[in-house]
């Protein structure tokens, strides 16, 4: 119930941002469309911890900051490599373990891997992620598993 409430608040806030018109008629339309979306998602049974993960909001702030910093570092590294005339890359495929228990946690981990330039998650099955890494350093960083630990910690918070 609280999940549905937070989802409808979120939907209406987004509607207000995108509309920019605040006359009673249009506001009524907004409320109506939000209610419709809520009804559809209720019937599809996607208002659950996976579809609307409210429990992740608190932990995602610190994780987002860490991920941003990691992103900036690997972006600069990769940009240097692309710009250098000798093109110093050493592509390889590696397999890393995703120690998250839920599907949502594994998706967050795989997406974080892909978002970081230098590593792309190619396939995922049985808790193992197949990763294409562009450099030895990027592969080693992933094998060391700091990102894995951080996503697991994010998943277990509530």
């Amino acid at each position: 119930m609280s999940r549905a409430l937070s989802l409808s608040t979120l939907l209406f806030a987004i509607w207000l941002i995108w509309s920019g018109h605040y006359t009673p008629l249009l506001l009524a339309f907004g409320v109506l469309s939000c209610a419709l979306v809520l009804l559809v998602s209720h019937r599809m049974r996607i208002i659950d911890p996976e579809g609307h993960p409210t429990h992740l909001v608190r932990g995602s702030l610190s994780y987002g900051l860490w991920l941003t910093w990691a992103l900036i570092q690997s972006n600069i590294d990769l940009a240097k490599r692309v710009l250098s005339p000798s093109l110093p890359i050493a592509p390889r495929m590696i397999r890393v373990k995703a120690s998250q228990k839920t599907h949502l946690g594994q998706v967050i981990y795989a997406n974080s891997i892909t978002l970081t330039p230098g590593t792309v998650s190619v396939d995922i099955e049985d808790g193992m992620i197949e990763v294409h890494a562009l450099t030895a350093e990027a592969a080693q960083e992933l094998i060391d598993g700091e990102m894995d630990r951080r996503v697991t910690r994010l998943e277990n918070e509530d």
Binding site: L78, P91, T119, V120
Partner: peptide, 10 residues
Amino acid sequence: FYSRQHAAGI
């Protein structure tokens, strides 16, 4: 192809 994906990532 696989290494080009990283460039698209930047």
